[in-house]
Design a protein around this nucleic acid. Structure first.
Lengths: 170, 170
DNA sequence: CTTGGAATGTCAACAAGGCTGACTTAAAAT
DNA sequence: ATTTTAAGTCAGCCTTGTTGACATTCCAAG
């Protein structure tokens, strides 16, 4: 389709970085990078009979201790049945604790146990090691650009969640 | 530590962008952005009884027409049984054509049919639209940084594949 | 020419982790 | 008192990944 940037759109600036070829490279970069992104935790999880879904739950419970099931549902974007299956095994295995809400007793507030925190550490250490290497190799300016583009790529709802993440609900 | 990043250095410079908190934000950015990244094609695929696996196969066959099954296997990082299941439906549905190799008749070379190309267009148009919006909002420098960090995040094998992608094998 | 190994395809079985739908329980809100 | 909400559960289905076993084809080395 449009192979080179058309100068006359917004201003006179070069839009060469918006060609289909550039976009295709970006798409493939996302695909390959995401594989790397999940590779290290996946290896650890495989030895424990857990999967990526468990990792995600653990990550976000750790980030927001006391979060409710509903909150987690919205963050993860899965059905409560899917989440419940994962959560149940984590609670049975003693990695997550579910406490009945004080104000609203219908709610369950989720916390990592000591053991849960230990696994979270193992997983995020592995994932951060790769991120750290990539960040260090790329430098601070590239990192800023990386984050900017990723934010712009999110759905608005998720971007809001991503940007807020300061709410603690206990 | 001070706040400004100094582009070219690596000794006494600020490493604030390498804190665990910064890394965690990067990790979550990847998670949320990847959701956005796949959302639009997923919606189209859902109406066609295809999944992400079909999209990936179609994408890489389109990128390298005539690629062999083995090549595709390496690129996608799945087992041949998994790929075969997807490939079979695509061939049955007339989106992909499999031609016996001329030099080595054991190999199958894969091509998109007209119909296959049409679907590829629909899917990649949708995906590129989001990427284009994100790129435009972020600007060329951010895009360069985005690509740099993603490349650094890949496994070395995959990075090589990502960077080459010029081989045509027919 | 024979044989070993590579590339491909296929069958079966299984698991993770998505989904929908239906239903229960408890508690809050109206 | 009734309705709505939060959570949990059961059943069943789908996609997409996995292993393992095995057949076929055919190149290439002995």
């Amino acid at each position: 389709m449009d192979e080179r940037g058309h100068p006359g759109m917004h201003s006179g600036e070069s839009l060469l970085f918006l060609t289909d070829e550039q976009l295709r490279k970006g798409i493939e970069a996302m695909f390959f990078a995401y594989r790397g992104f999940t590779a290290d935790p996946d290896r650890i999880l495989a030895t424990l009979a857990y999967g990526r879904a468990h990792h995600r739950a653990i990550h976000f419970i750790n980030r927001s201790p006391g979060t409710t099931v509903n909150n987690l549902l919205n963050t993860l974007g899965v059905t409560k049945q899917s989440l419940n299956r994962v959560l149940r095994t984590l609670i049975e295995d003693g990695l997550v604790e579910s406490r009945v809400g004080k104000k609203d007793k219908r709610e369950r507030h989720l916390f990592l146990t000591g053991e849960g925190e230990a696994l979270e550490q193992r997983l995020s250490d592995a994932q951060r090691a790769r991120m750290r290497a990539a960040y260090r190799a790329a430098g601070p300016e590239a990192v800023a650009g990386f984050r900017t583009v990723l934010e712009a790529m999110m759905d608005p709802d998720l971007r809001r969640q991503y940007l807020s993440l300061r709410e603690e609900n206990t």
